[in-house]
Simulated assay, not measured.
Amino acid sequence: MTQKILEVVQTTILKEKPDPSTLEFGKHFSDHMFMMDYTSEEGWHQPRVVPYQSLTLEPAAMVFHYGQTVFEGLKAYRSSNGDIRLFRPEENFKRLNQSCDRLSIPKVNEEAMLEYLKEFVKLDKDWIPKEKGMSLYIRPFIISTEATLDVSPSRAYTLMIILSPVGSFYKGGIDPVSIFVENEYTRAAPGGTGNAKTAGNYSGAYKAQERASSHKKDQVLWLDGVEKKYVEEVGSMNVFFKINDEIHTPALNGSILEGITRKSVIELLESEGMSVCERSISIDEVIAANENGSLQEMFGTGTAAVISPVGRLEYKGRDYEINNGKMGETASWLHETLVGIQTGALDDPFGWSIEVNG
């Protein structure tokens, strides 16, 4: 796949930027958007940056009926000297293609997409907040657009990227979250779409989140879809446990999303000589470890929060406090280190951050 020339059409009317102190996730969008189309005859073509605008789709567009769509999420950061940085964006486009493969969507040119993204971010760089802890959220997504009710993969798609300034996930310091262990509904099962970032995975989780909220818990901890026994992931995060000074995380089994922050945490820990055991972890083992004092920490990893410590767990009507409801030293170190690398405050020996010049 050869790289196409990027067309740029700048808006003539700039939006008023929101007050950084009132930013909410996904509520405000920058002046422009990236678009690229696919047809079975032309392949991916016409990459362009245009003014942010509404879409016109036929009612029969397949995305509305069969949910053939995938997406990604990453961020752009301002360093202390004003440089713009992207954190491992090549991993996001790699995972986007993995999701495309699972949803029978044509793959994109990963190298070309990274170059298009850089140019797009440079154009709307003034939307990247300068305040500490804030960033520009980047949402690439693909929708099927062929107008037919035929139950088969679409022959036409549109890829878009939109940008949204976001505030700090932790506005008043890092507070450990509370988790509701879901043992009725299932997020994913082996052979399903659990390891793809596709829309249905998220809307299918709403009912369980409602249950968690009714129990006054922040997020859902999903168990496996077969035995309802093994821990999989937390809401929009992968999950880690520190047990007897060892780090454990559920092994990728086809129904767990391959988190980029998860991957970074594993590589970061291993660089410090700490091995990470990727294996099947039962919820009963977690509860037993907490009760006998060997569970020292539990935390989630993801783009939004980077590291999110878990302070309380509810399972089968009983609450369990973890690490006295406080953030552990490992989670704290990981958060400080990853954020430091992302923002340029710390050296990046891994080459994870990419500077966007201009």
Rank of each mutant, 00 (worst) to 15 (best):
P59C: 03
L55V: 04
T69Y: 05
I138D: 08
L136E: 04
N109C: 03
F64V: 04
V50K: 15
T39W: 03
G67V: 05
N81A: 09
V49C: 12
V70P: 06
F120W: 11
M62A: 12
L114D: 05
V50M: 10
V121H: 09
N97D: 11
L114M: 14
S79H: 09
D126W: 00
L96C: 01
D101C: 01
E119M: 00
L96I: 06
E131D: 12
E119T: 11
T39L: 07
N109G: 07
S104Q: 15
F87G: 10
T69D: 15
N81P: 01
S40H: 10
T69K: 12
E110A: 14
N81E: 13
Y66M: 00
F93L: 04
N97E: 04
L86I: 02
L114C: 15
I84M: 10
G133A: 08
R88W: 02
L114A: 14
H65T: 05
F71H: 08
L123I: 11
K94G: 01
L96A: 02
H45L: 06
K132N: 12
L57A: 08
F120C: 09
G82S: 14
M134K: 13
L117K: 11
I138A: 03
L55W: 02
E119R: 15
D126E: 15
E119Q: 15
G67Q: 08
Y77A: 01
E72K: 10
P106L: 01
N92W: 08
R48L: 04
E111C: 09
H45K: 07
K94C: 03
